[in-house]
Design a protein around this nucleic acid. Structure first.
Lengths: 261, 261
DNA sequence: AAGTGGTCTAGACCACACT
DNA sequence: GTGTGGTCTAGACCACTTA
């Protein structure tokens, strides 16, 4: 059941209000005092709710004036973001996909660093082609730590959602680091996506950790052009975004949280 | 001077501690009580500091256990993120660039929607080529609202940092929405960047607003491959990231916060 | 059972934006 | 000056982890 906290309920209600245009574009929210009184909670709780909306980019906030509505919310839950299947469903598309290669092997240097393992430690490497409405849009190369890989390896190769299966085993994904850049199609990409050899792909590399901070998976996803874009909101109050200089001369494989140098 | 809040000082101190390896990779922070006592503040203030670090992806947090260090922080300030010049300096590169085209004209449909203007309203459109260490890496096409454009238009065409100049006029950038995807080089890109016609570029579209929530600029930046990557951290606790389905059939120009349909 | 973070309250004072 | 959000305090109770 797990009843959500009051401040989350309040945040959801306010978010819905903004979405329904209750305050208008560029409109103003009621004061914290007013919201507290209207909802029978303390000002502290109201502020917790509003802090959520602020990091989501739904409202601004400055001293001296009421909060202003920034935009229609256009966010996905953390879960939708990590699960291709859930994302596809949330936008009304039919997700599909199948495992194309699956192998237990030793971790290479990058994988070891990302999963906080020693080089050569056993990991499960899986390659999948993902489709929307039957058309291929993305190739996903994921590496799992041993305990997680053991669960994944037992899945049917045509299983729709890995994430949901992991959750049913009690595994919770809590944090993720994403790196987005551009790469060129290799022979496998060409075979699976039907693009030109050397054709451009939008690449997302992602390291996901569980609530204890232990790495769970390290994935490199390559999307066909014109199928997806990634959006982020940030502000003076809360920044979780950065721009990285990519290697220019010698080739260096680098991920979101690889060792500094 | 503007003395920063205690919780920001505390957050900075803890961030520095994590960076210096004081707690080790995967190590644990002291308890909230301990931090409060050690710093002579209340638990509430400690929690504010830790909330900052949590959204930055520096630490996890769960009920029942001490916070765990997630990674070496690798973030840029909001300001570094918006200013090419500041970013370049922060990574030890020499920023350069020059205005290539500058024009007052009427806003098109997309621009009007992004800047919350009516179609045809006067805007200043500026195209710049940006360099790192003398080598071109990015073409920036920015559209400013009339009051901001008035300031920009008076700048010398070889001014290094537009952002810093705007700040010196008291303009504060407070929020930004970013969309990252892939596009192909047009004739102007080829001329400025020296890439192949139709060659792939990493595109960032960005809408920036001031503290009142009013749009200030709308920019489309196109980076040569292998020059930058964007990184984001998100979590169950705070998500400001989304994955968007891009138009597949008919061409639709769409930005971070364009009207829903 | 003890320790820890999550939620919530009630109140105080300050900095800033309005008018 | 009045209203508003930002900061900070002190205390309470709960949910969860760990031993």
């Amino acid at each position: 059941m797990a009843k959500p906290a009051r401040y989350r309920e309040l945040a959801a209600a306010l978010r819905a209000g903004v979405l329904s245009g209750e305050y208008g574009a560029g409109g103003r929210l009621p004061s914290e005092e007013a919201l507290a009184a209207a909802n029978g909670v303390s000002r502290g709780t109201v502020r917790q709710a509003l802090a959520l909306l602020r990091t989501e980019g739904v409202v601004t906030s400055r001293r001296g004036t009421r909060r202003v509505v920034l935009e229609q919310p256009r966010l996905q839950s953390f879960t939708e973001l990590l699960s291709f299947t859930r994302w596809a469903r949330s936008i009304g598309e039919e997700p599909g996909g199948s495992v194309d290669a699956l192998e237990w092997r030793g971790a290479d240097a990058t994988e070891a660093a990302q999963l906080r393992l020693a080089e050569g430690d056993r990991v499960l490497a899986v390659r999948r082609c993902r489709t929307l409405g039957g058309r291929p849009v993305m190739v996903e190369r994921t590496v799992y730590t041993e305990p997680v890989g053991a669960l994944v390896a037992e899945m049917p190769t045509d299983a729709v959602s890995v994430t949901e299966l992991l959750e049913s085993h009690g595994l919770v994904l809590a944090d993720a680091d994403h790196t987005v850049d551009l790469t060129l199609a290799d022979a496998d990409d060409v075979a699976l996506l039907g693009c030109e050899p050397g054709g451009p792909l939008l690449r997302e590399r992602r390291r996901t950790t569980d609530p204890t901070g232990l790495p769970v998976e390290w994935s490199e996803d390559r999307y066909l052009p014109d199928t997806v874009a990634f959006t982020v909101h940030n502000s003076l109050a809360a920044t979780s975004l950065a721009r990285l200089r990519e290697a220019v001369g010698p080739k260096v494989t680098e991920g979101p949280a690889a060792p500094a140098s």
